[in-house]
Write a protein that binds this DNA or RNA. Structure first.
Length: 267
DNA sequence: ACTCGTGTTAGCTG
DNA sequence: TCAGCTAACACGAG
């Protein structure tokens, strides 16, 4: 389920939907497409094309061109907790090397947003839980710097603004964009920092360590196929032990989210 | 059967 | 103003 590395993979799939003429749009899911009314998104896309696929943190958006070739509003896409982007060709074959069969016909009810192209292919947001989101001109500037590109200096300045627990700050998309619950636990474990440390109490070397750990965790997740491949992730359960020192993993709630940490190294 | 959760956000409370 | 809590979404896993 999607954090930054998974969303980047979805963005690459989205690139297969570019420069194809849009002939139909289903935007009738009023929850996923809120606050737009049914037909509103359709009316700006019909006859036009998507021209580029961007990502910042876990948010994606496509530039659009209307039927006259004029630039239109951006089409924002968010996967929520379990959404997937599916792009197909005329034969229903999925783009992006996804080997799983396309179950769209059988699971049509879980397609929350669909764009059909004149070549017969489709772009779909498939999302059982309806936590994904589609909207025009999403406010990307409300997000902090992308977690992949944030500098140590930016991170230091942003963490220094608040006394909230460190993990809560890492999860706050306005502080930096792209870190979810698993990536936060993995990053803090790698950096040997307590999730509940007041964010503004980290010294310079601790922030640098956190920054390096964030980059390492992101790189590894991208290379290995997702944040669930992080080293500490499989030890996030009762009876789990720290894969470095063997001490018991401790569980609690930090920043409103289920949190696991090494009781010895991250005390 | 029942609880929890890889996400976000509005609205409330202290 | 800030931090924390709840509800809303709806399903799978344990």
């Amino acid at each position: 389920m999607p954090e930054l590395p998974e969303v980047e993979a979805a963005r690459r799939v989205l690139e297969h939907a570019l420069d194809r003429r849009i002939v139909a749009v289903d935007d009738t899911d009023e929850w996923v497409c809120r606050p737009h009314r049914p037909g509103e998104i359709a009316s700006v896309l019909l006859g036009g094309t998507l021209t580029a696929a961007h990502r910042r943190g876990k948010s994606m958006w496509c530039d659009t061109r209307d039927v006259h070739g004029e630039e239109g509003p951006a089409l924002g896409l968010h996967l929520g907790m379990g959404g997937r982007i599916v792009v197909t060709d005329a034969d229903g074959v999925r783009a992006g090397g996804d080997p799983r069969p396309d179950r769209a016909p059988r699971q049509a009810g879980w397609n929350r947003f669909t764009v059909r192209f004149d070549d017969g292919g489709e772009l779909r947001l498939f999302d059982k839980r309806r936590l994904g989101r589609v909207r025009l001109d999403p406010d990307i500037d409300a997000l902090g710097p992308d977690a992949e590109h944030i500098t140590a200096a930016q991170l230091r300045e942003r963490l220094g603004r608040s006394h909230a627990p460190l993990k809560a700050r890492l999860l706050d998309q306005k502080v930096l964009a792209g870190v979810g619950n698993l990536l936060a636990d993995e990053t803090l474990w790698q950096a040997r920092l307590s999730p509940s440390r007041p964010s503004d109490e980290l010294d310079r070397s601790e922030v640098n360590r956190l920054h390096r750990s964030l980059r390492r965790a992101l790189r590894a997740a991208t290379a290995n196929g997702g944040v669930h491949t992080g080293r500490v992730i499989e030890h996030r359960h009762a009876d789990g032990t720290c894969p470095r020192c063997g001490a018991p993993m401790v569980h609690g709630t930090v920043g409103g989210r289920s949190t696991w940490w090494c009781g010895k190294e991250q005390g």
